[in-house]
Design a binder for these strands. Structure first.
Length: 194
DNA sequence: ACGCAGATTTTCT
DNA sequence: GAAAATCTGCGTT
């Protein structure tokens, strides 16, 4: 997959802006070897905007072993395990020691479809945060790694028009359920929910 | 179309 | 011991 990596400076901004800006960018995984490369265009994200956000894992500045990557530098991965079986991938935003991130919720598959198919066993391949992690081979081993180089990276893709971005409430949370911090591409059939 | 329970493990009370 | 940024399958309308 060619393309230049999205730089740390991009992530070092207000999380909501980073979330919108990530739509249309390309997530590339070389997990399992470059020959098994998988990639997809980001079509759905959610923002978790820091200690003031009741739905954020680091709400109230709860700095624990689990949330430590959220306090790391912008442009790194926060991969957490939940519900006993699922991994979810976030891009850490803002400044070091400020715990905020963007959850990647869905991709439009664009490379390595056969590998995704084999890992997943069924469709859909990348619609849903746990599904895309399975399709790209993302696990806790990637927690804290840079997203600018290495096994997991985000590279520049075709940016959507502002009018193509839809805003809505985040999915699957019980705290701050009415905060409008989910963003997705209006016409994409690959979002996790219409 | 909708609702609910189960899988399974880490984290915090 | 309960809850959790999920997903599936099985039940009922």
């Amino acid at each position: 997959m060619r393309g230049s990596a999205v730089q740390a400076k991009f992530y070092a901004r207000p999380t909501e802006a980073v979330a919108r800006g990530l739509l249309g960018q390309i997530l590339v995984s070389d997990v399992g070897g470059r020959r098994r490369q998988t990639a997809g265009r980001i079509v759905e994200v959610e923002a978790y905007i820091g200690p003031q956000d009741p739905a954020c894992h680091a709400y109230g500045h709860r700095r624990t072993a689990r949330t430590e990557p959220l306090y790391g530098p912008p442009g790194t991965a926060y991969v957490y395990f939940t519900y006993g079986m699922h991994w979810c991938l976030n891009a850490v935003t803002e400044l070091p020691d400020y715990p905020a991130a963007v959850l990647i919720r869905a991709l439009e598959p664009i490379a390595g479809l056969a590998t995704m198919q084999r890992r997943r066993g069924k469709e859909p391949l990348c619609s849903g945060p746990a599904r895309l992690c399975e399709a790209l081979g993302v696990t806790g081993k990637l927690n804290g790694v840079s997203l600018q180089h290495g096994l997991l990276r985000i590279v520049e893709g075709k940016k959507p028009k502002p009018g193509d971005i839809v805003t809505g409430p985040r999915i699957g949370i019980t705290q701050a359920a009415d905060w409008l911090l989910r963003f997705y591409l209006k016409d994409s059939p690959f979002v996790s929910r219409g």
